[in-house]
Design a protein around this nucleic acid. Structure first.
Length: 771
DNA sequence: TTCTTCACGCTTTTT
DNA sequence: GCGTGAAGAA
């Protein structure tokens, strides 16, 4: 590095030339890049070049010599975002970008800081960072130890509460009494305290602690804070709308130094409220940071006019936003397409056909994506794509390091490094089965708790006595002997990959999986192989474990294959495709019922932002669809078009419905909406989501009476709520899985149905014959 | 201790 | 409809 001329000097060598990295920026972007002094909020709408502005600003600061790379602090939420930002910044800055030591996630930067000052917050610098799974197991132990029924008060819920408090920067002494009383009849705060003290005994902290302890460090030790004030001349924050209170306080403390803080975000894309993000942070930025400037980026470079119009039209229903008007010079091109279909299978079939057509037109599969609200919706598309032979990729499935087998292996490794890691011990003493059951483990835990020592220590002691006997004793002895042996080998300098392989083999873990003939066992073995090879990229076991604690991901970005992407709307943030499918726009699916039930209008507005995010992912074409019937958790349910369908702007949308279901948005001859009455006659009035007919709709109103049974006859009214009631004709029992209409003919597996209002006869080839 | 059976409940996801 | 998790049976 030292023999290279810093690029900043190259830039200075030709003072008259405008720096090339500013080329092609529009005036707003340029001003966001260049106003480097004082607080700045960049309100960047979807597709307005947010990341470009952020990285160019960073490059600008460094290449104009305002600060050295290591004097800038760049914070993101995810490791992926951090990686991307580093990559793009390096392209602009050149080799000097290597010095960006403080570019990372809130958590990784906090961990970096905490490791240097651990003793000031009551930790040893080797502290472990526990993940959600360990956290829940710890909560479970605490709850059981207190004699609280873990069924009534689930550990998961309690862990969620703790996370919630930590998101709001509330340590046990600060939690509002009434809130803590919600849990286990007033024991909430005590349990929280116990949890924290358990963590400190284990020399561990959870993700929330990383932030909170850093905040406490800064508050209690002004000298330390000063050191970081001096260090961080410029602060850049990505996705500011996703910050929670703890992160806000964290930033506030650091920004108090130079005041040069630049936050980039979009209040309309705040979709993580459920995990503590506070849109208010971005809404009141100007009050929070004195003398703040605001730059709006409103020129969209991504989507066509129609797509942008549809997105804007929906989002403007939200109150409490800063307000932006996105515009584009792009052409109008084709309208957003809206489709009403029979059921989830029809939807998958339709989208499959569209994708085949897209491909026939010479486009790449990787250029389109299916964005769903919830991951259970993905299955239908996977099934269909497999049938059609369309290569696809599900993005954001179960994470590698969260798989049971990987966590088991990691627990073994953790025990090698620090034998007092009780959570790891509990996880694998009896994995594979060694005859050490719950009773034995409980006995050990009891002694360990009373003695205040670790399970391994206690275990060694107990094995000298006769407190455990029989198979349990034999199992424990063998387990401990193995651990000692591996630890010896580790210290003797056996390579960590070699050691890992031996641990897996000698512990009997591989044999256990090999003996298991189920198809998953094979994948599990593969995963373990991958784990061992991934370890090879690290110098030591310790280095590997450190990495995994914070980056629960293996960055094996293949990406080269031409595959349709299937992902959730949340997972789609920050991405874009020429063609985007948005299926499942049904009320209670999207917007999600739970979201609205639990968080009312706030929840609804977040769902609406999700719709906004979804639409704005599309560059050229956007295909929205909803169905009349959907299988949810294996049960057939009749569903209504989402209210978001009604909020689409008619002028920019081309709508078709095959079901007779529709909305006020021009479905031609077909009736619209939904009625509480049983007969079609009463559907006369056009109803929309806002009409009384919709609003009065109660769950119970939707129940239809069971269809009349006419033995042997081929005609009956099939107006029952699908899935609710089977009906029989002669010996045959049917289970209706389509909408409401008059069944005309039943022949074999074919059913002809007439839909009175729509006036169409339709052959339904797919119905279930109940067993 | 481990195997079997039943009940339950079930968004979104990162660190 | 399916996987988890806890209570009862061998």
């Amino acid at each position: 590095m030292s023999d290279q001329i810093p690029l900043s000097q190259l830039a200075m060598a030709r003072p008259n030339a405008a720096p090339d990295y500013l080329d092609g920026l529009n005036p707003e972007q340029k001003s966001a890049v260049e106003s480097v002094d004082g607080p700045l909020l960049v309100l960047a709408g979807a597709g307005t070049g947010k990341t470009r502005v952020l990285t160019t600003r960073l490059a600008h600061i460094i290449r104009t010599g305002r600060a050295k790379p290591w004097n800038t602090l760049c914070v993101t939420f995810t490791n992926k975002a951090a990686r991307e930002m580093r990559e793009r910044a390096m392209n602009l800055i050149g080799p000097e970008g290597e010095g960006l030591r403080w570019l990372g996630t809130f958590h990784s930067i906090s961990a970096q800081i905490l490791r240097r000052h651990a003793e000031l917050v009551g930790l040893k610098s080797t502290f472990t960072i526990i993940d959600t799974d360990d956290q829940i197991r710890l909560c479970k132990q605490i709850i059981e130890a207190e004699g609280i029924d873990p069924k009534r008060w689930t550990p998961r819920y309690f862990a969620g509460l703790i996370d919630g408090w930590k998101n709001r920067a509330l340590m046990p002494d600060k939690v509002p009494a009434d809130e803590a009383y919600q849990f286990a009849d007033g024991k909430g705060i005590d349990l929280y305290k116990t949890y924290q003290s358990r963590l400190s005994v284990l020399n561990a902290c959870d993700f929330g602690d990383l932030l909170l302890l850093t905040i406490r460090l800064f508050q209690d030790h002004p000298d330390v804070l000063k050191e970081y004030h001096d260090r961080f001349r410029y602060i850049l924050v990505d996705e500011y709308q996703d910050t929670n209170i703890a992160q806000y306080l964290w930033l506030r403390l650091l920004a108090r130094g130079t005041g040069n803080i630049c936050c980039v975000g979009d209040d309309d894309q705040s979709i993580y409220g459920w995990r503590g993000a506070e849109v208010t942070n971005i809404l009141k930025f100007e009050q929070d940071f004195e003398g703040a400037n605001v730059v709006r980026l409103e020129r969209n470079y991504r989507s066509t006019g129609h797509i942008l119009a549809a997105a804007s039209h929906i989002i403007k229903e939200n109150r409490g936003r800063l307000g932006k008007t996105l515009w584009t010079e792009g052409e109008q091109s084709e309208k957003v397409r809206l489709r009403g279909l029979w059921d989830g299978e029809a939807e998958a079939r339709q989208i499959g056909d569209d994708i085949e057509q897209w491909q026939r037109d010479g486009n790449k599969l990787a250029d389109c994506a299916v964005l769903v609200r919830a991951s259970w919706q993905m299955r239908a598309f996977e099934e269909r794509f497999i049938m059609l032979g369309i290569p696809y990729k599900v993005i954001g499935g179960p994470r590698f390091f969260e798989r049971a087998e990987i966590r088991d292996a990691m627990a073994y490794f953790r025990l090698i490094r620090s034998e007092d890691d009780d959570l790891a011990f509990e996880r694998v003493v009896n994995q594979p089965k060694r005859g050490v059951g719950a009773t034995t483990l409980q006995k050990l835990q009891q002694i360990a708790r009373d003695d205040g020592r670790s399970l391994t220590t206690i275990c060694r002691m107990v094995l000298q006595t006769d407190e455990v006997k029989g198979p349990a004793k034999r199992g424990l002895t063998s387990f401990m002997n193995h651990l000692d042996m591996w630890r010896d080998k580790h210290h003797a300098g056996l390579s960590h990959t070699e050691l890992a392989q031996q641990i897996l083999d000698e512990s009997g873990y591989t044999d256990m999986l090999r003996a298991d003939r189920s198809p998953q066992a094979a994948t599990r073995l593969d995963n373990l192989k991958e784990l061992v090879s991934a370890m090879g990229q690290f110098d030591s076991l310790a280095a590997f474990l450190e990495h995994v604690q914070l980056v629960m991901d293996v960055s094996s970005e293949s990406g080269s294959d031409d595959e349709v992407q299937i992902l959730t709307l949340h997972g789609a943030k920050g991405l874009e495709w020429p063609l985007v499918f948005l299926p499942g726009w049904e009320e209670e699916v999207f917007p999600s019922k739970r979201s609205v039930d639990e968080n009312g209008n706030k929840g609804l507005e977040e769902e609406r932002r999700l719709a906004y995010v979804g639409i704005t992912r599309a560059r050229e074409r956007c295909m929205i669809s909803f169905v009349a019937n959907r299988q949810i958790y294996g049960r057939w349910q009749s569903v209504l078009p989402s209210r978001f369908v009604d909020e689409l702007p008619p002028d920019h949308v081309e709508a078709v419905s095959e079901t007779g279901y529709g909305t006020r948005q021009g479905f031609g001859e077909t009736y619209s909406g939904y009625s509480t009455s049983d007969s079609f006659e009463d559907l006369g009035e056009r109803s929309s989501y806002n009409s009384p007919g919709w609003q009065r709709l109660k769950k119970t109103d939707r129940k239809r009476t069971a269809p009349p049974v006419i033995d042997g006859k081929a005609e009956l009214i099939a107006s029952s709520s699908p899935g609710k009631s089977d009906f029989s004709i002669g010996q045959r029992v049917f289970h209706i899985k389509f909408g409401y209409g008059r069944v005309e003919v039943i022949e074999g597996a074919k059913l002809t149905v007439e839909f009175e209002k729509a006036g169409t006869k339709k052959v339904i080839g797919t119905f279930l014959e109940a067993a």
